[in-house]
């Protein structure tokens, strides 16, 4: 009697995926917002890419990372929401009462959230191609963009799962996702760094790790394989993941502990 950690994780992940699919409104709004960035800003703002600072870049390729990061953060947020839901309806306790691996109980919703993120990101990239996206670095570049999206999503999944496990409360977890807005908008969201006029926004964009994610994605999409420009995104992800996943792990340990 009893399963390996892998089997438990598989079972619980599968169930989280099922739950997500049965609640389409848990992912459709985020997907719409992400697609909105692409369609509306490409349609409405693409003229500004005529400015010399854009150095002839296509605005679609410039705005695509915003759309991808939005999709990634939204998908990863699903991890925390899944956990909070389980805690609130008592299913989390029900799982704790079984011999299931404690790790699997926490990991299941997180993996499902990551999968949601991956699919949303693919869809967004698909839409961008339909709109006529051209990628400087080709297929390899798209893979790099996907990896960055997953990495950044993982950092956010760690954050949202950590908040969920710590507060055990849907409202608090929901409030936690509002960090989405400063992360997305206080950055080089619509124009390059050089074009930001307000000093405070420049400061915010410098502090905001999302800026480095945007920049590294834009580099592969528009300029090509420029090692250090790409590395800034990777470094931002490593730092953010270290912090949020530690936070999630500590919170998880507390949530499943019997103290």
């Amino acid at each position: 009697m009893g399963n390996s950690v892998w089997k438990d994780t598989w079972l619980i992940t599968l169930r989280s995926i099922k739950t997500t699919l049965r609640n389409p409104f848990s992912f459709i709004p985020n997907l719409m917002i992400s697609a909105f960035f692409l369609l509306v800003y490409e349609g409405g703002l693409s003229g500004i890419s005529q400015l010399p600072m854009f150095e002839g870049a296509n605005y679609l390729a410039f705005i695509l990372p915003v759309s991808i990061v939005s999709a990634a953060i939204g998908g990863a947020g699903g991890a925390g929401q899944g956990i909070v839901k389980d805690i609130e309806n008592g299913f989390f306790s029900r799982l704790l009462l079984t011999p299931a691996s404690r790790l699997a109980i926490v990991l299941g919703p997180i993996i499902a959230g990551m999968l949601q993120l991956f699919i949303q990101t693919l869809l967004i990239i698909g839409i961008a191609f339909l709109l006529g996206l051209e990628v400087e670095t080709g297929f390899g570049g798209i893979l790099f963009v996907l990896l960055i999206a997953i990495g950044w999503g993982l950092a956010f999944a760690g954050y949202s799962a950590g908040v969920a496990l710590r507060t055990k409360n849907a409202q608090a977890a929901q409030a936690g996702t509002f960090i989405f807005f400063p992360l997305i908008f206080l950055s080089t969201t619509f124009v390059p760094y050089e074009l930001i006029e307000a000093q405070w926004l420049k400061v915010a964009a410098t502090i905001n790790p999302t800026t480095y994610i945007f920049e590294s994605m834009r580099t592969v999409l528009i300029d090509g394989w420029i090692f250090w420009d790409l590395m800034q995104g990777v470094i931002a992800i490593v730092i953010a993941c270290t912090i949020t996943i530690t936070f999630a792990a500590v919170s998880a340990k507390k949530a499943v502990s019997r103290g």
């Binding site: 009697m1 009893g2 169930r15 099922k18 739950t19 049965r22 609640n23 389980d86 309806n89 008592g90 299913f91 989390f92 306790s93 029900r94 799982l95 009462l97 011999p99």
Partner: peptide, 15 residues
């Protein structure tokens, strides 16, 4: 492994 537990609050996944 050997126990069954029904807590005061039911523990079911509504979906």
């Amino acid at each position: 492994r050997y126990i069954g537990v029904a807590l005061q609050e039911t523990g079911v996944d509504p979906d």
